[in-house]
Structure formats: C-alpha cells, structure tokens
Simulated scan of single mutants.
Amino acid sequence: TLEAILNFKYSGGPGHVEGYYRNLSMGLHVEVEPSVFFTRVSTLPATSTRQCHLLLDVFNSTEHELTVSARSNEELVLHAGECQRMAIQVDKFNFESFPESPGEKGQLASPKQLEEERQEARGLEISSRLDIRWGIISFSHGEASVEGLLNQLVLDHLQLAPLQWDVLVDGQLCDCEAAAACQVGDPVHLEVRLTNRSPRSVGPFALTVVPFQDHQNGVHNYDLHNITSFVGSSTFHLDAVQPSGQSACLGALLFLYTGDFFLHIRFHEDSTSKELPPSWFCLPSVHVRALEAQA
C-alpha cells in the first residue's frame, strides 16, 4: 500500500503578475496487489531421501492468462482468476551452509527474534534457488517468492537430515525407484552406511532388516521365512559416530524364489535413538528383484 499527499502550487494571468498563487493538496492511496500468490504451501516425500516435492497452490489474480515456471520445471498455465497446484521436485537443503542472519552475527536478539530471522533467511535463500517466475505474453513478467510462507513443518521437510543414511545392495546405492537385481540362491550383500553431519556424536545403533512383499493392494506379506534366509543375523550394529565421521555395517541374505521384495529397516528403540528427532532416521527404500539363476 502506498499513501501520499501531492501538493500543487499554481498561478496564472494577472494574478501571476501580482505574485498571487493557489495551493492544492490531493491525497493519493494506491494498493498494489500481487499478480500471483500462493494460497497454500506443503510438501510430499520423493523417491529419493535427499529430495522432496514442494507443493504450491498458485492463484492468478490478474485478468489475463499467465504462465508460472520454476527452475528445471515445466510451465504452468493459469487462466484469469484460476488456482492450480504446482509441484516442484527439489534437492533438500543443508541449512548449515546458509548465510547467517543479522541477529546470529550480533548475538543481541532474543531467541524468538533469532528464530524469526532464521526462518526469514532460509525462506529468502530457498526462493532464490527455486527461481519462480511468472509472465503474461507480450505484456508483463515478474518473480514470485515463497519468503514468509514456509512454516517450521515445511522447513523441516525441506532440510537435509543431519544423519545421512545409505543402503547398498551388492555395492549398488539404493535411493531411487529402480530395483536392485540378484539371482535366486546367490548371497545378496547388504551395507548400511551412516555419515554424521550433525555437531554431536551419535549412536551406537541397532537395526533389524525385515524383508516383505508388497501385493499392491494395501497388503504387505512379512511371512517370508521359507522364501528368504539371512546369512548370519538380521540385526545390524553401528558403533558411535563422531561429527563428520562415518560408520558402516555389513550383512547378507538369500532369496530362494523369484519375485520382487522390499527391505524394511527398523531401528531398535533405546535411549540413544529416542534422544534424536524421528526425521534423523530417514532411510531409503530398498527394492530387490530376485531372478532365475542363469544356467
């Protein structure tokens, strides 16, 4: 909103010769409305634990058709007065690498003010990386920002977890929809690797690998005792990991029949794991496809 008072001074004719003039004051009130704005912001998990989908409900408040686009994303066409959902797949952000807010540098602000400044700084940095733009053909264009719209829950989902978990099947990293292939009867080597990006020591941890089959109808079959067999124990142990350190545990299992299998990795509840937020224990999904052994 812009408010101002314009003062005019004018004169003319004989009065101007005599030095007479008149004053006129005019009030000015201008309300500037955004061409596009976001009515709702939320997130959904992606197939990779290092990515997520940022969902933006975009509203076109103009009387013209316009397009909205983000970096590495297709254009969304919005008619006048129309609202549509825009999904942007983004790499999760390492907030520790973001520039410090003014309050953090001076260390004079209250905790509440520091948190508000921190959220504002993160929103500004995320907006610059998303690079959301709108345009009206042959008329106008501009930028759209999510600054000030990202609540703490959304920021938590956008943050790269301080504990980075990797699962490898026969040396192949599992962090996507693709299934790792193996042959029936051959040992499948599993490795669970932990990288600690937090400023504190974590662990030790105990975790159990539980195979199951997804029947694609909401039913998961965990009764696979006659179909799978572990070489050794199905429980893995990870030692304590120092900041910037890494630890790994190894194991193996056999698939006795062909099919598509998934591995659910469950943490043992103890005092160590309960001290940490659940978002720190985000492991990738593991999909293994057992094929007939080649003759």
Rank of each mutant, 00 (worst) to 15 (best):
L56K: 08
E292C: 06
V90T: 05
T195E: 08
C282P: 01
V192Q: 05
N94D: 13
N23F: 09
V77H: 02
T258A: 13
P14L: 10
R129A: 11
G185E: 05
L44H: 07
V146Y: 00
A290I: 15
G81N: 02
R193Y: 00
H189F: 07
T228D: 12
T208S: 11
A70C: 12
V41S: 05
L56M: 08
E18T: 04
S61H: 08
L124N: 10
H29Q: 11
F255G: 01
V209K: 10
P187R: 07
D91A: 03
S229F: 09
Q84E: 06
P34M: 01
L78T: 02
N60G: 08
A179E: 00
D260M: 10
D57Y: 06
A87G: 04
P162I: 13
E100D: 03
F262K: 12
D223K: 09
F267G: 04
E125G: 03
H29V: 03
I5Y: 07
V286W: 10
F59L: 07
V90Q: 03
S273D: 00
F212E: 00
K92V: 10
C52H: 01
S35R: 07
G259V: 09
S69V: 09
S201Y: 04
H189C: 00
H16P: 00
L224M: 13
H220P: 01
D156M: 09
C249I: 12
Q246R: 14
A248K: 03
S25P: 06
G245F: 08
M26I: 13
G15R: 02
M86P: 02
A87T: 03
S140E: 13
Y10T: 13
N60F: 04
V17S: 10
Q152N: 09
L54G: 04
F205N: 00
